[in-house]
Design a protein around this nucleic acid. Structure first.
Length: 465
RNA sequence: GGCGUCGUGGCCAAGUGGUAAGGCAAGGGUCUGCAAAACCCUCAUCACGGGUUCGAAUCCCGUCGACGCCUCCA
């Protein structure tokens, strides 16, 4: 039974979907006004792994991830660059889609955008006004009336009174209550704007997500996710809007990932301590970022630095070692040993599932995989044939695939392979004649070209990397 | 100031009542002509101080510290 930590209840709960075998999952995407950074990648990776695991467990997952493509920051940036705000947003949407692809993140079923959900947003704002949950203020904005929503604050565990006390908010005089938040913002001259019963304007930040949920997934969803910096106010406000509008509980499970830490602080656009996904991928393989995420609990902060990245890279090398072919010229091991390996594969698979069922405990699941690696490598050392290794390696591929790891061999140009084979063969003759200096020279030269040779008693293997 | 998360070996990180998973690094060994890889072995008593318990990293109280949110933020 899968159990998931629910931010709403602050407990792990059994996972029950609204509809059998179908998971409605909404994950907050990004506001597109700049290059996405590795912190965004972390969040996307966390939910990609969750999705892959749910699918592995037999669920059909309808995964929705939005783009916020109109807001203050986009408008400001566009003004700065003297670019059309819609074009700017489109540019960064395309970039982000490419980032996700490069990170081997499965595409969402839909990527709704605020600007393409305007009808739903408008009707939701209207509905909230009609029900008394919102009001059009004198300044042209429409605000949500937090005092009308009796359990406002339930997600973040705050009370309205507490929030008033310490909040450093410029109190907008048009608001009835300082914590009321904008559903609709009146447009200033020159800003992108849509017609509405309250004059020209654009949606507030939170309402778009409520509207997109309603449009793409319905009134109630199973999983709503995002970084834990979104808990308040964004997700709190989403709940307030959605539940006030529909009168039904909104999301069953609220899942929030911890934030990536760079130099002891979270990485964020406003702090300026950013490593973009693009820059990261120009230096390291996508699997490295993924391994970094898998190595820790998704809810805990993730330490991102050269040291942790190097360790992640080595960890990947280790996983790859399990996929190597049998040693040359082996005769195979007794059937008993081979079936032991197969049974280890089954044990590992079960341990993997048990770990992941416990709130997606990827570090523990990874440890299970390492057990299998060790068993495979031992079998290989003992002379197991490829046929004997294959079933366990298939399990290894299967489980690392659930993690979304690609574990591609480091590659040179494929055309070179047969020449390398030839060199290795010739070197074999050289070694028979015990011409060690020459043999070592060939090995060293190949190493500097990115080809690693490994000699064993019965022959030599080579690989890129 | 309020709310919340957390503090496990050199580094990253599981474990949340019965005497500390895993990865990286380090040291030793097997194998090898050498090397590499692989395999084997070694390496922590869980921030600190109290308390509960037969028994606590794991529960409670306090102290110190870190981080997040309260304002745009994955």
């Amino acid at each position: 039974m899968l159990r998931i930590y629910n931010t709403l209840t602050r407990r792990k709960e059994d996972f029950q979907t609204l509809e059998p075998n179908l998971v409605r999952m909404y994950v907050c995407g990004v506001t597109v006004y700049n290059d996405a950074h590795v912190g965004h990648a972390m969040s996307a990776l966390v939910f990609d792994v969750i999705r892959r695991y749910l699918e592995y467990r037999g669920y059909k997952v309808r995964h929705v991830m939005n783009f916020t493509d109109v807001d203050d920051k986009i408008i400001n940036r566009a003004n700065q660059l003297k670019e059309d705000p819609f074009k700017l947003a489109q540019r960064y949407i395309d970039d982000y889609a490419q980032n996700l692809k490069d990170l081997n993140i499965l595409p969402a079923a839909v990527n709704p955008r605020a600007t393409q959900t305007m009808n739903e947003i408008l009707s939701m704002v209207k509905g909230l006004i009609e029900k008394g949950y919102a009001y059009a203020a004198t300044n042209g904005d429409v605000y949500f009336r937090v005092t009308k929503n009796k359990d406002y604050g339930k997600l973040s565990g705050r009370k309205l009174d507490d929030m008033q006390a310490g909040a450093r908010i410029e109190i907008e005089e048009a608001k009835e209550h300082p914590m009321d938040f904008a559903l609709w913002k009146a447009a200033k001259p020159g800003e992108p704007a849509w017609d509405s019963p309250w004059g020209k304007g654009r949606p507030g930040w939170h309402i778009e997500c409520s509207a997109m949920n309603l449009k793409e997934l319905g009134e109630q969803i199973d999983i709503h996710g995002g970084g834990n910096d979104l808990i308040f106010p964004h997700h709190e406000n989403e709940i307030a809007q959605s539940e006030s509008f529909t009168g039904k509980p909104f999301a069953r499970y609220w899942i929030h990932n911890g934030l990536l830490q760079l130099g002891g602080e979270k990485m964020s656009k406003s702090l300026g301590n950013i490593v973009s996904i693009k820059d990261f991928l120009s230096q390291r393989n996508a699997d490295v970022m993924r391994m970094l995420v898998l190595n820790g609990s998704y809810r805990a902060p993730l330490i991102f630095n050269e040291e942790t990245l190097d360790a992640a890279e080595k960890n990947l090398d280790r996983l790859r070692s399990g996929l190597r072919l049998a040693l040359p010229n082996v005769k195979g091991v007794p059937a008993g040993s081979a079936s032991e390996l197969t049974s280890q594969a089954q044990t590992t698979q079960q341990n993997f599932i048990n770990a992941m069922d416990d709130d997606f405990n990827t570090p523990l699941a990874l440890a299970a995989i390492h057990e299998l690696i060790k068993a495979i490598n031992t079998a290989r050392d003992n002379g197991a044939s490829d046929d004997q290794l294959r079933p366990a390696q298939a399990t290894l591929r299967e489980l690392t695939g659930v993690f979304g790891l690609q574990l591609q061999d480091k590659k040179g140009s494929g055309d070179a392979d047969k020449f390398i084979d030839l060199l290795v063969e010739v070197r074999g003759e050289v070694r028979k004649q015990k011409l060690w200096p020459l043999s070592d020279l060939i090995r060293d030269k190949l190493k500097s070209l990115g080809v690693t040779l490994e000699d064993s008693k019965d022959g030599t293997t080579w690989r890129w990397g």
